[in-house]
Computed example of a mutant assay.
Amino acid sequence: MKKYLLLAATSLLATSALADVTRHALPNNSTFPISRAVEVSPETTLIFHSGTVPGPVNPDAERGSREYYGDTETQALNVFKRMEDSFKELGVGFGDIIKMQVFLVGDPTMDGKMDFAGFMKAYTKYFGTKEQPNKPARSAFQIAGLAGGPNMLIEIEAVIARPN
């Protein structure tokens, strides 16, 4: 009997921890990899992660050039890797992100339009996958520029929920 009570209590605790974050799917069975909304319980710790920009992918190239940073997809992958390193130090992961804001600079090779498709190629490697199915609420904006220079095309900030 005690074994069953312990098992039930353990199951209840696991359910409680999972219940700290509720992700609401997009309507009409949309497969787009974001949540319509995400809610957290009052007991959840929120971490506001500052914007992350890409580092050089080719440090031998001219500093700040397109070759130095790469295209939007390359920069997004670089940003996600940098975020992953930061998350490890914080004890969280991509599945804990509840809100993401993505700032994309218009790509000069695309007549000044943001490369949303390039960003999404990188994003879908981290969100809505079999390995990491949690999807944040997300916004993406085209902006005029970033402090890093004319060929820096992306910055991502996130709100992370860590159950207590």
Rank of each mutant, 00 (worst) to 15 (best):
K99Q: 06
A9V: 10
I98N: 03
A137H: 15
P59Y: 04
K113E: 15
A158T: 02
Y126L: 05
S11N: 04
K121C: 04
P108C: 11
M110F: 10
L77C: 05
S30V: 01
G95H: 04
T109H: 12
N58Y: 03
N28T: 06
D111S: 15
R66D: 12
A76L: 04
S16M: 10
A14D: 02
F80I: 07
D111N: 15
V21E: 07
M114S: 13
F141N: 14
N29T: 09
R162C: 08
L153A: 02
G128E: 02
L7F: 11
A25P: 02
G128Y: 00
A144E: 15
S30G: 02
F127T: 01
N78Q: 10
L153N: 00
Q75A: 02
E155T: 05
P163H: 12
K121M: 08
P150G: 12
S50P: 11
F48V: 12
E39N: 06
Y4A: 10
T22S: 14
D96L: 04
G95W: 02
G148S: 15
L13G: 01
V159N: 04
A76R: 01
E131P: 04
L90P: 09
L153F: 03
T31S: 03
A161V: 05
V53F: 12
L146H: 15
P59Q: 05
I98G: 04
E43D: 13
L13N: 00
R63L: 09
A144K: 15
F32S: 00
N151E: 13
S11E: 03
A117T: 06
D20R: 13
P150C: 10
T74S: 04
I156S: 05
R82K: 14
P108M: 10
S50K: 15
H24L: 12
K81F: 08
Y126E: 06
T15N: 08
V40Y: 02
A161I: 07
F94R: 02
P27N: 03
G128T: 01
D115G: 07
A158S: 05
P150I: 11
K121Y: 07
S41F: 00
F141P: 11
L104D: 12
V92T: 04
T31K: 04
M152N: 09
K113R: 15
I97S: 00
R138Y: 09
V40N: 01
T72C: 11
V79L: 06
M1I: 00
L153V: 03
T15W: 08
E84W: 13
N78S: 12
R162I: 08
F119A: 09
A19E: 06
G112H: 13
N134K: 11
E39G: 01
G51Y: 13
N58G: 07
E84N: 15
G106R: 14
S41N: 04
A61S: 03
Y68W: 13
T44R: 00
P42H: 09
L5K: 07
G112S: 13
G55S: 13
A37P: 02
A19H: 07
F80G: 06
L104A: 14
F116D: 11
M152L: 13
P133M: 06
L90N: 13
F94M: 09
S30H: 01
M1H: 00
I154T: 05
F141R: 14
M120E: 07
V38K: 00
L13P: 00
I34R: 01
G145R: 14
F116G: 08
